[in-house]
């Protein structure tokens, strides 16, 4: 089992132009270390393609291509089918798409690829806004977060603001889907290894802090990736062959301020806002635990 302590030496994502502390680039780097050179990466328009493919300095050490923004799932499907037609079976086809490319503009193509059971690993690195264009609200922006298109802090109409991608994936009946966070590297690395072994589509939704977009220190990425889990705002969940499992099921959560307090995007949250956020979190956990019981047939 590959862990953060024995990550393979070879680097497959170097010389890129991502910001200091970029969570998304950690997701790409670690994943490729696990998958190795025999893989083909598809990356749509967004931060990781913008920083990794600037002619003539290519930062990817594996075969890779940029997909049209809306088409990650479709390009992955095409690569997978081309390899299948050629009889090549030992190459992993992996997608790295941001939250906007996944939850918003690319959802249709992703749904099609899930539905067709394409042999691909799709990883959404979620930094909770359109960061490449300069921090605009996406379908994964959380309650209260300031973006340049929600300058007063995002106030959703419902109490479940982030699109629930794991349930969307699970609803397609794919064999494996999981959430992860760059703050819990071993959990993430284990899930990459599992997802890569699956026959058919697998999906990872990975929490990936963006210091530039969030207004936090460049060295806070891993810390925030832990505290978002410890505060209960980002449950670590695994959907495998029809059953849901909680990888962490804490009896008590850390105070929300340990997470929100480090980020300028949450600076306008009032005590009442935090109480609302806490109530929403607790409702979501009740629903999540009910889903776990239901999927286990209890």
């Amino acid at each position: 089992m590959i862990t953060i302590k024995n990550l393979p030496e070879p680097e497959y994502f170097v010389g890129h132009k991502a910001c200091g502390g970029c969570g998304g680039s950690l997701v790409v780097r670690w994943t490729l270390k696990v998958l190795g050179e025999r893989c083909i990466a598809v990356i749509p328009a967004g931060c990781m393609s913008a920083v990794g493919f600037i002619y003539p300095q290519m930062a990817l050490g594996v075969n890779a291509m940029i997909a049209p923004f809306a088409a990650t799932g479709a390009v992955l499907s095409g690569v997978a089918r081309g390899l299948k037609a050629r009889g090549i079976e030992d190459v992993t086809v992996v997608g790295f798409a941001g939250d906007g490319a996944t939850a918003d503009i690319g959802l249709q193509a992703l749904s099609g690829a899930f539905d067709r059971r394409e042999r691909m690993l799709y990883i959404c690195y979620d930094n909770e806004a359109y960061m490449n264009t300069g921090i605009q609200k996406s379908g994964a922006t959380p309650f209260g977060a300031r973006t340049t298109t929600s300058p007063g802090g995002y106030r959703p109409e419902t109490d479940a603001p982030k699109k629930d991608l794991i349930r969307i994936a699970a609803a397609h009946g794919i064999p494996y889907a999981a959430t992860a966070s760059v703050g819990y590297a071993n959990d993430f690395l284990k899930k990459v290894q599992k997802a890569a072994q699956v026959e058919g589509p697998s999906f990872l939704h990975v929490f990936a802090p963006c210091p530039t977009g969030w207004g936090c220190d460049a060295d806070s990425t891993v810390r925030l990736g832990k505290s978002v889990v410890d505060t209960g705002l980002w449950p670590l969940v695994e959907w495998e062959n029809g059953a849901v499992r909680l990888n962490r099921n804490p009896a008590r959560f850390a105070p929300l301020e340990t997470y929100t307090g480090e980020q300028a995007r949450f600076r306008r949250l009032t005590a009442a806002d935090l109480a609302d956020l806490e109530a929403t979190r607790d409702r979501q956990w009740r629903a999540l635990r009910a889903w776990v019981r239901e999927s286990a047939g209890m």
Partner: peptide
Amino acid sequence: VHVESEHSALALVMGAAAT
């Protein structure tokens, strides 16, 4: 491949052609 849109149709054959 039964795709979900024309946008995906052309994107998919690009991915395949890349192989």
